[in-house]
């Protein structure tokens, strides 16, 4: 059974109170993008065995979308965070590294600092 803590209301929600929303941090490809990029935005999804970032909605609760970091192999949950974060925040990265020392983020720090998370 999967239990995720909603970062908006603090409720420890069990999986049946949540609605899954697939991969987190997708960036929309607009009219200027190539056909290949747009196709990838629509259809290409990461499918890692290990650390994964996902969207979840607290459907039977406050109704907000939030993001979760967890392991697809062990189902270990590293943490949840608000959907306003363009990238996983530092405490999530630290929580993952505490259990998966070899894991590397696949986004760049400059990006992460440039787009500081809003409330």
């Amino acid at each position: 059974m999967l239990i995720l803590t909603c970062p908006y209301c603090g409720v420890q929600a069990e999986e049946t109170e949540l609605h899954p929303g697939g991969e987190a941090h997708l960036k929309r490809v607009g009219p200027d993008g190539s056909d290949e990029d747009f196709e990838a935005y629509l259809f290409a999804r990461k499918n890692p065995k290990g650390v994964h970032f996902e969207r979840w909605r607290h459907a039977y609760g406050c109704g907000k979308w939030f993001l979760a970091a967890r392991c697809t192999a062990s189902l270990q949950v590293f943490g949840t965070y608000k959907a306003q974060n363009p990238y996983p925040p530092a405490e999530i990265v630290d929580a993952i590294r505490a259990h998966r020392p070899d894991w590397q983020p696949d986004w760049t720090v400059q990006h992460a600092q440039a787009e500081s998370p809003a409330e």
Partner: peptide, 20 residues
Amino acid sequence: GPTGITTDGVRSLGWMSPDE
């Protein structure tokens, strides 16, 4: 506050979400 409900015995005011 978040997930709280206040009451005076007749009326109650419940927290439904961060903006509701």
